[in-house]
Nucleic acid binder design. Structure first.
Lengths: 226, 226
DNA sequence: AGTCCATGGATTGTTGACAATAAGGTTGTG
DNA sequence: CACAACCTTATTGTCAACAATCCATGGACT
């Protein structure tokens, strides 16, 4: 258990993180009804903090809760995953535009650096889907925070990305097109470096749209069901 | 106190609703540090459900909470309000596009009907800002749900609208351009009725952008501060 | 035999007391 | 007189017991 150093980290926060990662990683199956006491035993918690965490998770839409009837992980459909990507398309487009207008030069330099490191990571660990996914996450994370739009970053980082990662784990497919995605990333960063907000928005929207189509195709082909 | 009939309504839900409306209406001043026991006394609650509600509110960004240091309503700036409108612009644009593709004919008919009722309401109660705001809210609400995009509707109705309403209460200005906004609404509905998603998205984005500029102008002119 | 109702059990929601932590005042010293 | 360290106090975080609610199993009736 990684003892966090920074500041007092309440049990409720701990419960929240544990549950969130458990849901995202698929340790808690969707639709499965789970009792509170069972969860307490599993994560060494008491019901007080656990309930507080459950409230937060419910508010974020990761689980549903009927009064007196227990809590279950949200069950998901491919349609909803597609809808999620449609939301990402417009929101991250906005993020890219604002990032082009507001990111500092050092932030852009860092962005280039992470891009290079992702490239070497992909070359080294060929086909290791995990690193691809992490690199992709890192890239989008930086742009979201670079937009200087507090609420936008909060919605992307706090809600949507966890949802997307949950679906990814369940599909066990990490977009699967490493080099192409990397090239798209590079072009987006170039647009940001040139302070061309409109272009950055356009490229980001196209990038996410391509990712969505890729997943949709894979699902239709392989009959991948969630 | 409106006794909800439908299903068992827990104390935590009650606390959540009470606090949310109190924050939105400005009964709880931003930045003001409020103790839990004081809140309990104010809303006739105990600390358990209250804490659960506080967790949910924090997760939604309506208040901030430092461990062992209490909870305070989120303090807001005009810049953040503008950012909120930028987010609304892209998200509601998407909602309008999807609504044009997916709304049923009866839903569209209802939309027309509400538009007419809003018109008569505005004519009758001239300058009554309240009705304008409610009509505006109703319109956007219907389009969000009409998009058939669960997560999108959830984010708009559950997060953004409460935020916007909070700012509106504090500014005590309800956009202030009734007839113009109504005309814009009507054109959006016409685009939806013609199943022209692209046009509906464009018009909605322009509508929200105009509202943003209107508020920005008012703030600069009148020196309205939040 | 199928369906409806009732009762028991288990689970959730709630409560009040206890412990841990940070803020604020007080006191002592430079 | 100002600053810093200590201590007090009030507030938050946590816990375990109590009460309310729902689900399931069993029985009776149609």
């Amino acid at each position: 258990m990684p003892e966090i150093i920074s500041q007092s980290y309440t049990r409720a926060d701990e419960a929240f993180d544990c549950l969130q990662t458990a849901i995202v990683k698929g340790d808690l199956s969707p639709g499965e009804k789970i009792g509170e006491v069972e969860l307490c035993a599993r994560f060494n918690l008491t019901r007080g903090p656990l309930r507080e965490a459950l409230g937060r998770l419910e508010s974020r839409g990761l689980l549903v809760r009927r009064p007196h009837a227990g809590v279950k992980v949200v069950s998901v459909s491919t349609e909803e995953l597609m809808e999620l990507y449609r939301i990402r398309e417009v929101m991250e487009g906005l993020a890219a535009r604002q990032a082009a207008e507001r990111m500092t030069d050092t932030e852009i330099a860092d962005l280039y650096a992470t891009l290079d490191s992702h490239e070497t990571m992909i070359e080294q660990a060929q086909g290791q889907a995990y690193y691809q996914a992490e690199g992709d996450y890192d890239f989008h994370h930086r742009i979201a925070t670079g937009s200087r739009n507090t609420k936008l970053a909060q919605m992307l980082l706090g809600d949507l990305y966890y949802m997307v990662r949950m679906y990814r784990y369940r599909l066990s497919t990490a977009s699967g097109r490493p080099h192409m995605a990397l090239g798209e990333h590079r072009r987006i960063v170039e647009a940001i470096a040139q302070r061309d907000g409109e272009l950055a928005e356009f490229l980001m929207k196209r990038h996410i749209n391509a990712a969505r189509q890729n997943i949709e195709r894979k699902i239709q082909q392989g009959g991948l069901t969630i």
